[in-house]
Design a protein around this nucleic acid. Structure first.
Lengths: 104, 104
DNA sequence: TATGTTAATCGGGTTTTTTCGATATGTCAA
DNA sequence: TTGACATATCGAAAAAACCCGATTAACATA
């Protein structure tokens, strides 16, 4: 858990938004994808395309942003067929919160 | 309190360090400046020169970093004679914690 | 008032970030 | 196996961040 990498990831409007959207996916991504398994739905993953549409940036940019958020540890991903679903890594986010409370 | 500006300010090793140093100034800045009023000492302000020395970067860079941290709201400054003392703005930092706990 | 000291600002070379379009990879379905 | 679709990766132009030395501004004091 590198704090600098986390802050870098969060210091971009779009990436910060993505993290917040994924806190309540059902609220921000109306259409429940048909290809989404019930299990996946419970875990709250959202596929890249839906995030691209919502963010209004290019597919390549969003894909890179998601990778960056994942490398920072804030997101985790799971591939199902041709779709990759991203969801928050709540464990790391809680850890971040604790370390900030202590150190910051 | 702009979260993006705060994250940008924190996404640099030196600036993050400065903020942490200022959490316990007496621990990280040994020499209590003679020119430091008792009142100032209680509030824990540290002058720019001491931070420059500790950080090992140029005076201009540190001055700019401090300004940036201040603009983000994380630090506050007070000028006494030819010295400017910087200290943490604990109110804002607490606000930041709360907003992160809620929104992030 | 002239000098020295502290801190802020300016201008700029270098590196990193941002964001894109094009292309590659992986997967499903006919 | 071919075509269509989702996502990842590549290469690059533009913008921003990094960090410096030089200069300016503000202040103290002799």
């Amino acid at each position: 858990m590198n704090q600098i990498d986390i802050f870098k990831a969060l210091s971009n409007e779009t990436r910060l938004e993505i993290l917040k959207w994924l806190k309540e996916p059902e609220k921000h991504f109306d259409k429940p994808s048909a290809h989404l398994s019930k299990n996946m739905n419970e875990k709250g993953g959202v596929c890249v395309g839906d995030i691209v549409e919502k963010a209004g940036l290019s597919q390549s940019t969003i894909s890179q942003y998601l990778t960056m958020l994942q490398k920072a540890g804030l997101l985790e991903s799971e591939r199902h067929g041709q779709w990759t679903y991203y969801r928050r890594n709540e464990t790391i986010i809680k850890e971040l919160w604790n370390s900030l409370k202590e150190e910051l």
